[in-house]
Deep mutational scan, measured.
Amino acid sequence: LVRYRTISKIPQITLNFVDLKGDPFLASPTSDREIIAPKIKERTHNVTEKVTQVLSLGADVLPEYKLQAPRIHRWTILHYSPFKAVWDWLILLLVIYTAVFTPYSAAFLLKETEEGPPATECGYACQPLAVVDLIVDIMFIVDILINFRTTYVNANEEVVSHPGRIAVHYFKGWFLIDMVAAIPFDLLIFGSGSEELIGLLKTARLLRLVRVARKLDRYSEYGAAVLFLLMCTFALIAHWLACIWYAIGNMEQPHMDSRIGWLHNLGDQIGKPYNSSGLGGPSIKDKYVTALYFTFSSLTSVGFGNVSPNTNSEKIFSICVMLIGSLMYASIFGNVSAIIQRLYSGTARYHTQMLRVREFIRFHQIPNPLRQRLEEYFQHAWSYTNGIDMNAVLKGFPECLQADICLHLNRSLLQHCKPFRGATKGCLRALAMKFKTTHAPPGDTLVHAGDLLTALYFISRGSIEILRGDVVVAILGKNDIFGEPLNLYARPGKSNGDVRALTYCDLHKIHR
């Protein structure tokens, strides 16, 4: 019993810090008490220290592992850092350059016999395009090294910054494609005289377009951006097909006994025919423009016929181009109408809503002055909100995010209106959640004399007048207030005048 009563005193000691020596009952000389009392004092002292730490809000209350900052290894790049964003855009520009100039170089340097010394005699450094290609190869190699040090988000939505895990993730992902696209074939085969082989191998750079397509997928929600990307894709495919079309004609031209190829026909049409040795002929500019003209006309199913396939190889390629053109029509131009419709969806919704308003007016036989006010209010409210119901949009977000959005939407009023000066951010967040926005066209009466005042109004834009009878008592403008002081009276009061809008007004109100 003594032991039980001794232990039962522990909660009292913990909360009230009572010393055991003052209790005459606990001072009985028993061996059990002498053993338990020192333990009680020690526990009391420890609990006292913990309570003191909690009340003082000291940093040592938290466990040590929670006080440590997340460790980022040296030379690790955050995937959302500004440097990584700028670097990704730079790589994107280099990939676009590669997609345009690599097929052009591979096709127009394929057994090209233009006048001038061969590239091997001039030297590697004197070729501007080769120098640019070398810079692109170096940048792609540097990009691989950067990807080995860039964080990523795993399946659990955690940012991984450990170098080993980053390397394994990159090896399992895009490393092989990036490595093949970054191989400097110019340096590996330079001086061997195989410019045709170098041009063909350099087309491996186009593998990076797969990554670019995935990154550009984030802009699919913007109709104008999608339309622009589709047109660029169409032009890029036409450019690639033009390079292939020229390569076919250029390879067949020296081996044909009869002059029936499209390059021969082009030379005869523009007065620059090929001679018996295969030299001469149109310039590279004429060849490229004509090839691009043929691919565009074939892809769009126009086909004027002034550039036509004559050999079997050219006919087979033309059939493939027609098939590609039909697929592009289905996948690209078939979506253009939907994209344009999405661009004008706001206008369509406006006309639909206006039609419903006019049908309501016609069905209920609203008189002319009231009908005009109804239409003007709808037009003004639509121009202010673009038909978007803010309350319906915010309803799907958590309250903390709703408060931040409301604070942002009402920031101008909260910053410049005098009653809100000096208020804490928590108070402003709470008030912003209570605001209701209303609009009024010129001549609209917001409050009639004798109406119950259940709200306090803040003028965000425009001006109003307060009338008693036919006498203008006051004219209020931006950041002015009218209405009933909230919670100042037990019952809502009545208006002693009319409140009429002089201009288009936007008002925020808080109800009782």
Score class of each variant (00 low, 15 high):
residue 102 T to N: 01
residue 134 L to C: 05
residue 91 I to H: 01
residue 209 L to G: 05
residue 115 E to A: 13
residue 219 Y to L: 13
residue 335 N to H: 12
residue 274 Y to S: 01
residue 98 T to P: 01
residue 383 S to M: 10
residue 99 A to D: 01
residue 169 H to C: 04
residue 206 L to A: 04
residue 336 V to F: 08
residue 412 S to W: 09
residue 349 R to H: 05
residue 170 Y to H: 01
residue 351 H to W: 15
residue 328 M to C: 13
residue 113 T to K: 13
residue 124 Y to C: 01
residue 74 R to L: 05
residue 381 A to P: 03
residue 314 E to L: 01
residue 100 V to K: 01
residue 112 E to G: 08
residue 416 H to C: 12
residue 442 P to I: 04
residue 249 G to A: 03
residue 336 V to N: 03
residue 273 P to N: 03
residue 167 A to T: 04
residue 199 G to N: 09
residue 155 A to R: 13
residue 394 L to H: 03
residue 121 E to F: 07
residue 192 S to E: 11
residue 440 A to W: 04
residue 418 K to P: 10
residue 445 T to L: 12
residue 238 A to W: 01
residue 425 K to D: 13
residue 128 P to R: 03
residue 105 S to E: 04
residue 70 P to H: 15
residue 92 L to Q: 07
residue 406 C to Y: 08
residue 419 P to V: 13
residue 214 R to Q: 05
residue 401 L to R: 02
residue 77 I to C: 05
residue 176 L to H: 04
residue 419 P to L: 06
residue 184 P to Y: 01
residue 431 L to Q: 03
residue 179 M to D: 01
residue 293 Y to Q: 01
residue 304 F to I: 03
residue 412 S to E: 12
residue 80 Y to T: 07
residue 237 I to D: 01
residue 113 T to C: 01
residue 367 P to T: 05
residue 164 G to V: 13
residue 427 C to R: 01
residue 440 A to M: 15
residue 447 V to H: 01
residue 427 C to K: 01
residue 88 D to I: 01
residue 294 F to D: 01
residue 334 G to Y: 03
residue 248 I to P: 01
residue 97 Y to C: 01
residue 90 L to G: 07
residue 100 V to R: 01
residue 447 V to M: 12
residue 92 L to N: 01
residue 141 I to T: 14
residue 390 M to E: 03
residue 144 I to M: 14
residue 442 P to V: 04
residue 351 H to A: 05
residue 247 A to Y: 13
residue 268 D to H: 04
residue 397 F to V: 08
residue 108 F to Q: 01
residue 68 Q to M: 15
residue 94 L to A: 13
residue 139 M to Q: 02
residue 287 K to P: 01
residue 109 L to R: 14
residue 412 S to G: 09
residue 442 P to S: 05
residue 397 F to H: 01
residue 305 G to T: 01
residue 184 P to L: 01
residue 445 T to P: 05
residue 274 Y to A: 01
residue 351 H to Y: 13
residue 243 C to Q: 01
residue 99 A to L: 01
